[in-house]
Amino acid sequence: MSSIHIEAAFKCFGSVKALDRVSLTAQPGEFVVLLGPSGSGKTTLLRAVAGLERLDGGAIWRGEELVEAPALGLHLPPEVRRLGMVFQEYALWPHLTVLENVALPLRERRLGSWRELAQEALEGVGLEALTQRLPHQLSGGQQQRVALARAIASHPQVLLFDEPLSNLDAQLREELRLLIARLTHQHSITALYITHDQSEAFFLADKLGVMREGQLLQFDRPEVVYHRPAHPFVARFTGAQGGLEAYQEGLRLHLNTMVVQQQAARTGRMRVYFRPESLRLHHQPHPQALLAVVSHCAYQGQHYQSWLMLEDATLVQAPSPQRLQAGERVWLEPHPDHLFVFAEGDE
């Protein structure tokens, strides 16, 4: 088992800071997910760990071994970093069969048991019957399973995932993310996984990092990120809504007509976010609730999901046990403990 430690990673592309002093540690056997929109620097960070991108500053350790340190002129090439990686575009070698694709890295490392290892990896992803096929004869999901088998075949201690599921449809995504979670835990692999899909991130992560514009805004257990986002962007990107204007005076937060008691005293203009499931719906006026007009309601199986327009024209979602009519007036009561309050200008 091996850890990954990144210290103040810095990288510029021209005048754009792709990585702005990012530090994080993935403990041995830990599954770390980096979540962020495109251009947030997560891909650059992953590629730097793989050795496919050179940092401009900072350092990367794999266990106790320093693998990247531009200040020392140190850059271990990818092939000696002993990693596994799964690419967004699968990156299967089109001229090799499924078995050969999985076996090539093993044979390159002169492992005598390459055939057994490859076979075992393919069984692990359920493709033992297709070993002689060529990549273009497989479906997208099958191709990504081959890529996964290739990455785990040599039992690497560290596995990198570059948005591996983004090219697949919903059902396959769910199937494969389960497979990935199972395989990595089974082999106690330290994983670094990047994605822009929050549900994927929460599903897989032991530790979750949220990135924006080259900066790591928060890095913590997914539960903490979900319940205590450290930054308005983290709140928004993990599904919180609102961004309502508010004013706090000491411990009292004034939100529209509501007054909510806060635990930390401060004074100034605030922005308030909340998660859909923390809203309670009232059909009558309520002192601790916000007035909203139903704009759309959709059936979701167990409940209904409604899109509601607040007085300041902010659109929010809330679950409801029954169907609401468009144009209907309702009152939304946020759970006071589940409000995310950020000082205005924290962005």
Partner: peptide
């Protein structure tokens, strides 16, 4: 040749020369 083909090889331990011999040249 998509660059990821060569990258995939190198990440999985295939050396630069190996990439040339096993991936680039055959293709």
């Amino acid at each position: 040749l998509h660059h990821s083909l060569g990258e995939a090889a190198r990440v999985h331990g295939v050396s630069g020369l190996g990439v040339l011999r096993r991936i680039t040249l055959p293709l």
